[in-house]
């Protein structure tokens, strides 16, 4: 499943979303400097190398920052927006589900999963078990 940018016939963005549509959450790693990369791109933002591989991260992460977007119940109610630091290093925007938005706190250990949604699959997080 995991590939290199060099072997892909599509760009990084399309490949990421194709994999996500099949339920796979992949990130990238630079083969030149070993730095993990998210969001997906064509060259390494740390060293400029184009030698990039894809892999499935552990899904383990830590809440770096969080906010509750306030919405009236009739507009769908409050929801969480969070920045998650992945165990492998990169940061991504996501949402912590399974607890009230106000209960999401910086430093919480969370676990990624791919949520199936009509408008397209997305990566969300839930609080990690002890």
């Amino acid at each position: 499943m995991a590939q290199d940018n060099a072997t892909l016939t599509v760009g990084a963005e399309k490949y990421f979303h194709e994999q996500l549509a099949q339920g796979h959450f992949l990130i990238q790693r630079c083969k030149a400097c070993s730095t993990s990369i998210f969001f997906p791109r064509m060259i390494c933002p740390h060293c400029g190398s184009g030698d990039i591989e894809w892999y499935a991260p552990s899904g383990k992460g830590t809440v770096y920052a969080t906010t509750t977007v306030r919405k009236k119940p009739e507009a769908g109610g409050d929801y969480n927006v969070a920045l998650i630091d992945l165990e492998e290093g990169p940061r991504m925007m996501s949402r912590v589900e399974g607890i009230a938005p106000a209960e999401v706190k910086i430093g919480q250990k969370v676990q990624a999963s791919v949520k199936t949604a009509e408008e397209g699959n997305i990566v969300i997080f839930t609080v990690a078990g002890e």
Partner: peptide, 16 residues
């Protein structure tokens, strides 16, 4: 990589 989570733009970024 951000729009799917519906942050208020630009407000939620500053809130974070």
């Amino acid at each position: 990589y951000e729009n799917p989570y519906n942050p208020l733009s630009p407000l939620s970024s500053y809130a974070l």
